[in-house]
Design a protein around this nucleic acid. Structure first.
Lengths: 156, 156
DNA sequence: TTTTTTTATTTGCGCTTTGCAACTAAATTA
DNA sequence: TAATTTAGTTGCAAAGCGCAAATAAAAAAA
């Protein structure tokens, strides 16, 4: 029988492919996959600093810096200097940025609808609640990661 | 409230980061992230052809060819010519390949255990079943993708 | 059977992305 | 005021990518 780990791995991989096809088919000329994630995260958080987003996405800051520059040159993102700390740049979406993101939303919502379309209402309900549980659990596990790093019985 | 799409996106992203940290911390010198997926898939399918794996992972065949060559040079993967069709290479894991994959398994199983550790048995049960449902649904949606490609109301 | 077409995989090549090291500038600490 | 830390930017070299073209084997057409 398939392990939980396998289930997760396969699901994550396939969903990732869906997102990739989105970036190809629906906004490929505008933004790359990473860039769509950046837009998504900027909207989600509000007006995050560069560091904040880079860390959340697990991207190196230097790479991130370049990506933001690119998004800025496409006028999808603006940055303003934080009033509290002039070192930090706060990121925000332009109207065009919002629009591109809305495009992606529509595309992905459609795909998600396709996926859920063959489930019963009860199954949907269950799956959605499970996703909530998973997300909570992952963030909790992520937080504890640092302190117990040495406790993890990782590979030799 | 968070949409399903957002839940999925966030979950997939965070789990992806976990896998990446695995490749760094537990087998970074041996295999990259993509390569670990390749090993995983070879084991999962049995003795797949190159095409088969490349397609499943959504990697360009030319890129895939090079990745396999690299894995071969590290003696983690072997290929043999298919008896039925001498054009196709069938992939397999060497003992060393199995071992690396087992390392990754341990690391990831541990992470997954951490994630699930704060759920009740009932929640675990639910989440695991949901993952099964999701995987089935995604593969079903994936299959239908080609025929209805033009029906998708994608972005303009 | 011979020719043409299709299929599986590999290489050449240029382009993009990446991460490290080193740098600037602003804050914080000593 | 000097030293340290923090946020972000660039130079550079390496890695990864996909397209176009090549090879080699099978399948289809002639």
């Amino acid at each position: 029988m398939e392990s939980v780990r396998e289930k997760l791995q396969i699901f994550v991989r396939r969903f990732g492919l869906l997102s990739a096809s989105c970036c190809d088919e629906c906004c490929g000329e505008q933004v790359s996959m990473v860039q769509s994630h950046i837009l998504f995260e900027i909207r989600r958080v509000g007006n995050p600093s560069m560091q904040r987003v880079a860390e959340e996405l697990g991207i190196d800051v230097t790479t991130f810096s370049r990506q933001v520059k690119s998004l800025e040159s496409k006028a999808l993102v603006v940055r303003r200097v934080s009033p509290e700390d002039r070192r930090v740049s706060l990121l925000g979406l332009t109207d065009a940025g919002e629009r591109v993101l809305a495009q992606i939303d529509r595309y992905m919502a459609d795909k998600v609808e396709q996926i859920f379309s063959c489930m019963t209402p009860f199954e949907r309900e269950t799956v959605i609640r499970s996703l909530g549980l998973l997300n909570d659990a992952v963030s909790r596990a992520g937080c504890r990661c640092e302190p117990q790093e040495e406790k993890i019985a990782c590979c030799k």
